[in-house]
Computed example of a mutant assay.
Amino acid sequence: MCMVKYSKAIGHQDSKCENRISSLTADRDALRDERYQLKLDSINLTKEMEVRDTLQEEVNRLNLNEPCQEGWKTFNGKCYYFSTSGVTRSWESSRKYCKERGADLVIITTKEELNFVVQSYRVTWIGLSDREQENSWKWVDGSDLIDDGFWQVGEPNNHQNDEHCAEVSRSAKRFNDVPCERKFSWACEN
């Protein structure tokens, strides 16, 4: 800090202080400009990563030259895996199984896809839950459930405050919320 002592050289001290203040001000302004540029770079990099991820997902979807893995079924250009008959898991365990194979629980977006998924088992886990926030149903990719027309009448009802995961049944061909710990068959989508 510049302090001026009482002396004959006050003019000399003032000059030193002014130079120091000027230097510190220039350093502060340079740091402010650098911080602003880093923020811009961060924003641009985040946008580029989002675009890259979106493009990679699209490439994966459109890469129809590669057949589905053995044991997987093709429907509308996507690959689906249905759990082995008689094998059931909780919602989280089913999701883990899918993720270990480079997939995730199925995200149903059309009536045709719903009809395809319900063919295999009496009840099947799908990639839909409100585990993060009650009544805020999200797919496993983080997207919101947009069309809630696939729910069974009266659902989701969160019966006994513990129904946070969704399943579909062959008989109803509609979504139903149930406790995530229940064990059902599951469908993966890649």
Rank of each mutant, 00 (worst) to 15 (best):
I108Y: 09
E70Q: 13
C79A: 06
G71E: 12
S90A: 04
C79T: 02
N76M: 12
C79S: 08
S85P: 02
S90Y: 00
Y80W: 08
D104E: 11
C98R: 01
E113L: 11
T110G: 14
S90D: 10
R89A: 11
E92W: 02
V106Y: 15
D104C: 07
Y80I: 01
V106T: 15
Y97R: 07
F82W: 09
E100N: 15
E113G: 03
L114T: 02
T110Q: 10
R95F: 06
E92N: 11
T74F: 01
R95K: 14
W91F: 12
W91I: 11
I108N: 05
R101F: 08
Y97Q: 07
T109N: 15
A103S: 14
S83P: 09
K111V: 11
K111Y: 08
G71N: 14
T84C: 00
R89P: 01
N76I: 06
V106E: 15
S94L: 07
R89Y: 05
S83G: 15
L105K: 09
F116H: 02
T74C: 10
R101P: 06
N115H: 11
K78E: 15
K99A: 13
G71H: 10
T110W: 10
C98T: 03
T84A: 05
G102Y: 03
W91H: 14
K96A: 14
S94E: 09
T88W: 00
T74H: 01
S94H: 05
I108W: 07
I107D: 09
V117D: 11
L105W: 06
T84K: 12
F116R: 00
F75Q: 04
C98P: 04
F75M: 03
T109M: 15
V87W: 02
G71Q: 09
G86A: 03
K96M: 09
F82H: 11
K73Q: 12
K111P: 11
